[in-house]
Amino acid sequence: MAKAKANQKVHPLEELIRTERLPHIWCSGCGVGTVFSACLAAIQETGIDHKKFSMVSGIGCSGRGAGYVKLDSFHTTHGRSIPFATGIKMANPSLNVIVFSGDGDLFAIGGNHFIHAARRNMDITVICINNFIYGMTGGQVAATTPHMDRSATTPYGNPEMPFNLPLMAYASGATYVARWTMIHSRDLTDSFVEAINHRGFSFIEVLSPCPINYGRRNKIKSLDMLKLFADNTIIKNNADPAELDIDFKKGVVLGKFVDIDKPTPDENYEKVCMMR
């Protein structure tokens, strides 16, 4: 994080926030703001010229991230942040493109785009705020809602099983995969810095509370959720992605699971097509 100067009367991230748009739409106790803040802190920490960044979001609560960052930022259609980011990155590989969006956006409607961008090792950073629910539409079941949890569309409990997101990212070809929760903000910020500097497709899943639409239905208050994040998680770098199912009773594994070097499509395109 940036070191605030003594007697500084503004928040250290102020230069990256569209402050005229505050307060943001995120509810009291929502973790998206924290993850967003970690992302901005990471952007600052890289020391890279802000003009060289672009943030792309899809639709949903997390998808509003692009609207608050003082960068060239794009709030696209539902699920389409990754192909939009792909267009930006391929057309101008000198840019650092960050996709900031939610689990519903990236893994249900946008699932196909995610696996293909990972397969290509597209040099973008994908931050997925996983709050286990469709928050903005009022708490419907998501592809990440734990089995038997309640939602607006699973009033008797979720009969389905959720995705293991780091496993999917790994299996699809992502070259940087990590998972944190929003209260692990230092690790999270460090991880974002690594991911931005990583050449290739980087993916960070961030577990985050949705007190209104997930917590309320599942009788868990936001502070208790955060305590669960603190107490029922295990940091285990390089853990086997197949063993990363989310079960707070057993303990949820956090850490960096994949960090490998592979060529990216922009550099390959130049080699294969342009310098032929």
């Binding site: 060239d72 990754i82 939009f84 792909t86």
Partner: peptide
């Protein structure tokens, strides 16, 4: 969908 979306992203560069 992705083809069309990618050209919008690229257009903004």
């Amino acid at each position: 969908i992705a083809a069309m979306t990618s050209i919008l992203g690229a257009a903004w560069t």
